[in-house]
Amino acid sequence: MTADALSETFQALADPTRRAILARLALGEASVSELGAPFDMSLPAVSRHLKVLERAGLIERGRQAQWRPCRLNGEGLKPVFDWVEEYRRFWEHSFDRLEAYLDEIQAKDASDERH
């Protein structure tokens, strides 16, 4: 996934209504009106959120003209969760360096005390 595509995914996730829609879809597919029911929101407004999610590759829409069920696209979500590994790399390396730096500081303090 390109940086731009991932960026679009994060943008799509930045909205609490869209996250709630995704959470609902994690339970199974649903229609636009079902998805809109918990919110005080017009169907066109719900549709706009769905378009953002679809463009970001987070959901898929069925092709039936009347009832276009939405479902979660796990492949689109996975890269977002993979970022946890990036954080792990960052922090573990930082911890290694912090440990070495602490040793350095404490050795210096001890030697200062001796002088």
């Binding site: 996250r19 995704l22 959470a23 994690a26 339970l27 979660l72 796990g74 492949e75 979500l77 969760f81």
Partner: peptide
């Protein structure tokens, strides 16, 4: 994110 995020994480974990 609380519960909503847990559910998404579980979903992705099943892939």
């Amino acid at each position: 994110w609380g519960a909503s995020l847990d559910r998404l994480g579980e979903f992705v974990a099943t892939l």
